[in-house]
């Protein structure tokens, strides 16, 4: 993939140096695509995405974004460089109002802030209606939209999402994933971790499967969706897990 906007090469990372959770991971994400990472629990999916976001230190390997090495850059700098990260849980500030959450996210936007705020309200009308309420009072789906709105505020070129549909109703999950899909039409690249394998594969362009901190398999989402082995292991496993 020559036009990869994000590359991970031989990434070894974990919370402490002697105990890597990611043992060797390579990844390439095409511009304006949706790439999904799946794998069993403990495979290191969330750790991979946090490592890219600068929240987990690398012990070796490197991460390249737009041709520049971003392996050792602080998370707040990455955010300023257009890499947004939406955590799985606790992804909004509960004690701040919705408006304050968005203002915080728009802090660096300067003169454009007011216009962008209106854009975000237009895109997510429920947020506009509740702008002066504490974000902690939002429903699960609305929280997820607020988190996505906060990520969009900085006009990122790459959004990292950690299980955006976790804990949501199937309908809300679908809405969130479709929202992510829609963003690619404006040139935004999306990399997400999902448990909701089938739903995610339908929306994604490309998919990586991790296991025990290593690449297991990767390919186009459509191929993997129809692959009988993947279907049995991941799609079947998910049904069992949900039962």
């Amino acid at each position: 993939m020559g036009d990869a906007v994000l590359r991970a090469e031989g990434v070894v990372a974990g919370y402490v140096p002697d105990l890597p959770i990611l043992k060797a991971v390579d990844l390439a994400v095409r511009r304006a695509s949706v790439t999904v990472i799946i794998g069993p629990n403990g495979a290191g999916k969330s750790t991979l995405i946090k490592t890219i976001a600068g929240l987990v230190p690398l012990s070796s390997g490197r991460i390249i974004h737009d041709g520049a090495d971003i392996s050792r850059i602080r998370p707040d700098r990455l955010a300023a460089q257009g890499i947004a990260y939406v955590p799985q849980m606790d992804n909004i500030f509960r004690t701040l109002t919705i408006r304050q959450n968005l203002d915080l996210a728009l802090r660096r936007a300067g003169a454009e802030a007011a216009g962008r705020l209106e854009d975000l309200y237009a895109r997510f009308p429920p947020l506009a209606d509740k702008r002066n309420e504490k974000a902690g009072a939002l429903s699960g789906g609305q929280r997820q939209f607020l988190a996505v709105a906060m990520a969009l505020a900085a006009r990122p070129s790459l959004i990292l999402m950690d299980e955006p549909s976790a804990g949501l109703s199937p309908k809300a999950a679908q809405e969130v994933l479709e929202c992510a899909r829609g963003l690619t039409e404006q040139g935004v690249t999306i990399l997400l971790v999902e448990q909701n394998v089938k739903q995610a594969l339908r929306l994604a362009d490309h998919c990586y499967i991790l296991a025990e901190g290593r690449n297991q398999l990767d390919g186009s989402a459509a191929d993997l969706l129809s692959d009988p082995v993947v279907g049995e292991i991941y799609l079947g496993a998910r049904r069992k897990g949900a039962a």
Binding site: P57, Q88, M89
Partner: peptide, 14 residues
């Protein structure tokens, strides 16, 4: 072994 404290500022959110 294997249960060291996680660094706080870069703490896990899972």
């Amino acid at each position: 072994a294997g249960q060291p404290r996680k660094p706080r500022t870069t703490g896990s959110m899972t």
